[in-house]
Design a binder for these strands. Structure first.
Length: 355
DNA sequence: TACACGTGGAG
DNA sequence: TCTCCAAGTGT
């Protein structure tokens, strides 16, 4: 049965080549949105257009003409978009949602194999909801941030109970699900249902910071000004808005990256405010580097790795071997239990949560 | 608002 | 080797 949604606004009705490309996935053709595209009814995010944009002086800014940005970026996307499984027409809303959970802070290349296995095992929300949460944590493997697995499982249960097994279409409904915040709600509504939403992820924020605002990097946390700018740049037509969201995101992921600026390959290099300004270096304090070695996170990771790889309950003595500092070790284990990622049994054994 | 939360590849 | 960072969320 059809799992969930209609065709994605991001992919052509064409069938993908049998020998689909792997992680590195070269460019795959992504023709214009199909005519009788997605439903797309709701039109939130309405806001005054150009008003939010910085005053334009020369050719740089896109003030009164956001289309000057939309057209070349979307055209670039048609030719350079990666052929990713969650962008295929048959992915459905559930596929889109699963991919968004997995992609939170995790590279595409590492998500691909886990995504495929996940969807094969749990093709619908109800399938996952019927499993013990520990199975979700186990299948999550080494993607990192395993709480996401727990939340995805919780979201699947909520969808099964409250929405009759179908991924909800409304932004507010999506937002009410565990693990779904502002970004993911907008992404699912836009990518899966073709709605008009400002989809502000780290890629889009960087592209806007450079191309429109003229600075190398966006602020650490998303600001009201960024949201306003994103809404102002949103195309009126829902289908085009969804296309724009995917296109601007892909541009940030493939060309306008954090470490490199592929201006030579950029479709809007000619009007990029940052480039036109001579690419001034980032001002202000350097972003805080996240040290990992020796942190509770590392200990938690080791403890959970043991539980994931064990078929059943594990004795405390075994867990004790992963870290020699007892106080930190105990704190990490307690944290995992408090988070619901680990279930303590009454006989000194621990296991992944059963329900 | 700032910080906790995993993991591994790239430069 | 070591720093940076990858489609964020929750508190």
């Amino acid at each position: 049965m059809t799992a969930t949604s209609p065709h994605s606004p991001l992919t052509p009705p064409h069938t993908t080549p049998p020998h689909t490309a792997p992680a590195t996935a070269a460019a795959a053709p992504a023709p214009p949105a199909p005519a009788g595209a997605p439903p797309a009814e709701s039109v939130p995010d309405r806001e005054a257009p150009a008003s939010a944009l910085p005053a334009s002086g020369g050719a740089a800014v896109t003030a009164g003409d956001p289309a000057a940005l939309h057209t070349p970026v979307i055209a670039w996307f048609e030719t350079n978009a990666r052929d990713l499984p969650w962008r295929r027409p048959d992915a459905g809303a559930w596929g889109v949602m699963v991919s968004e959970f997995m992609l939170q802070q995790t590279p595409v290349s590492r998500v691909l194999p886990v995504y495929e296995q996940w969807l094969a095992r749990w093709p619908r929300p109800a399938d996952l909801a019927a499993e013990a949460p520990g199975e979700a944590v186990r299948a999550w493997g080494r993607l990192g941030y395993p709480r996401r697995a727990l939340r995805l499982h919780g979201a699947a249960q909520a969808i099964t109970e409250r929405y009759d097994g179908d991924v909800p279409r409304e932004h507010a409904q999506l937002l009410s699900l565990p693990g779904i915040g502002e970004y993911t709600a907008a992404a699912v509504a836009s990518f899966a249902y073709g709605q008009r939403h400002a989809v502000l992820d780290t890629n889009v924020r960087r592209v806007f910071a450079r191309a429109v605002t003229g600075v190398q990097y966006p602020p650490n946390a998303t600001t009201a000004a960024e949201r306003k700018l994103a809404r102002a740049l949103l195309p009126e037509d829902p289908g085009t808005a969804a296309r724009w969201a995917a296109s601007s995101m892909e541009l940030g992921a493939l060309v306008c990256t954090a470490k490199n600026e592929g201006c030579a390959r950029c479709p809007i290099a000619a009007r990029c405010a940052w480039r036109l300004a001579g690419k001034p270096a980032h001002e202000g304090p350097a972003r805080r580097g996240q040290t990992y070695a020796g942190t509770d996170r590392q200990v938690r990771g080791r403890l959970l790795a043991v539980l994931r790889d064990a078929p059943g309950p594990v004795a405390q003595a075994v867990l004790d071997t992963v870290w020699n500092e007892p106080v930190q070790r105990a704190r990490a284990l307690d944290g995992l239990v408090a988070d619901g990622l680990v279930e303590p049994l009454d006989n000194g054994l621990y296991r992944l949560p059963q329900g």
